[in-house]
Amino acid sequence: MARGHSLLAYAITRLVLAVPMLVVLLTAVFMILRVLPGDPILALWGGRTPPEAVVEDARRELGLDQPPWVQYGSYMTGVFSGRLGTSIGELYRGQSVWAVISDKLPATIELAIGSMIVASLVGIVTGVVAGSRRDTWIDVGIRLYGTIVWVIPIFWLGLIFQLVFGVWLGWLPPHGRWTGTDIPPQVTGLFTVDALLAGDLSRFGKAVAHLVLPCLTLGLVLSGFFTKTVRASMLKTVTADYSEAARARGVPERRVVARHAFRNALVPVVTVLGLQFAILFAGAVLTERTFSIEGIGQLLLNSITSKDMTMIQGVVVVYAAIIVAISLVVDILGAMIDPRIRL
């Protein structure tokens, strides 16, 4: 009971600390957007000069005629009450920002989850192997892998995968989330889940086939970090007292690694996981571009080029909210696993 209580207290403290973080991010974005060159209203007219009255109306409608602090206030209250406004860009003019984002979000979520699975699987396996065979050639090889894979440009790896598996071998579709029009009936927007909900295994397979290359690309690049972290903490746990004690009791080495060292080695991995998501989302933008996936990364890029201020704000808010939420969850997870953090 006492344990649960203090965990709750920790979670609440952490949640309260997340709010200023969100505020700082939103303020930074507001400041950046207000000094962005190019009038968004003139950008809508694409080079033609709109009538003065129209510009005035549009300005009033968007609240751009008010002083910056008033704009800032209404922007912040809007964001925190969940109103993200309507798009003012060319592509989605007049549409609700939230509707457009929630339309694009599932693609990014599928990609992010898939890559995290690849990254953690590859990273943990290589990290454990390297950590339990310290200073052998396998260890050196895996360390090199961890260093090299981390600095490979995602888009370059993606292009190579497209070329090899999509073009030369023809095993997997090189582009997009789906080919054809038989998209599974939309429930969640995640094609894999929707196909399963519809009980359609062949369409599930098709959705997965489209996901393999992007997730492999992003996942492998991210795996380097897992490899390094798991290896480093394995080095400590393999030689820790409890592992030595197990060995002394005659527990076979495989079991020592699997049961004693491995489990404890995962604790620090969870705590550093939170930092990975910022990198994951940056990588997702590049992956989406490379594989022509219409996710929120692509949406943000298109909004930047079309100077769609409200859409940029909306996407950044969603990004910030996801990142803050994830780091919150990861921190609480870490506190659950390792009670020392709560202190």
Binding site: M21, L25, A28, P37, I304
Partner: peptide
Amino acid sequence: VLIMDSLYSFPGLLFAGLIAVLLG
């Protein structure tokens, strides 16, 4: 620390992209 940590947690590429558009 709060400001720097917040900035650090946001995808750097996207921030740099926004600012690159701003600066030209």
